[in-house]
């Protein structure tokens, strides 16, 4: 077990959600909410606490798209590429954001850990297509230019 890692947060989360194997997804979700990713250190700890192998926890964590094993940016921008957004040209928005931040499909987070850009299959806000979210706040009827504006606003904010 890693001595320098503070497991207090993890303990609190386990206490809240219950020390059950079935709670592992919810526990990982809360851990990720706190750290913005799943630190490697929590795996052996959870494995011992919940009685599930580390390989199994890793298996769950890599199955679901929302979990990240690498730190995500302070602002997580999700560009919707659902059907409605796709037919209303969501891809140019995505490309614009990636270009502005020097990101790609493989590299989704900026080195300064300020921005993460990813796609999401549908945010269910199809009436406002194309949409994107920044840390779960929905921005409707986007265009590549609007996206740049939004980005600039966030950059000043940091």
């Amino acid at each position: 077990m890693n001595k320098t890692f503070d497991y207090k947060v993890v303990d609190e989360i386990i206490d809240e959600l219950g020390n059950r194997q079935s709670a592992v997804i919810a526990i990982l979700q809360n851990i990720q909410e706190h750290y913005r990713y799943l630190p490697k250190e929590v795996f052996p700890y959870l494995s011992k606490k919940l009685g599930i192998s580390q390989a199994k926890i890793y298996s769950v964590a890599t199955f679901y798209e929302n979990f990240s094993l690498r730190p995500k940016g302070k602002y997580v921008i999700k560009v919707c590429d659902g059907t409605a957004c796709h037919v209303r040209k969501s891809i140019p928005i995505l490309e614009k954001l990636r270009k502005e931040l020097g990101l790609s499909e493989m590299k989704t987070t900026t080195d300064d850990l300020h921005f993460t850009v990813e796609t999401v299959s549908c945010l269910g806000a199809c009436g406002l297509a194309p949409v994107l979210t920044v840390n779960d706040k929905v921005y409707p009827a986007m265009t590549p230019d609007k996206a740049t504006g939004l980005l600039n606003g966030l950059k000043e904010d940091k």
């Binding site: 490697k40 795996f43 192998s53 580390q54 390989a55 926890i57 890793y58 890599t62 199955f63």
Partner: peptide
């Protein structure tokens, strides 16, 4: 429990933790 599935779809592999 040394190995399990990791990732999904066509990226799925059999893997140890990490």
């Amino acid at each position: 429990g040394a190995i399990d599935f990791a990732h999904r779809g066509s990226k799925m592999i059999i893997s140890t933790a990490f």
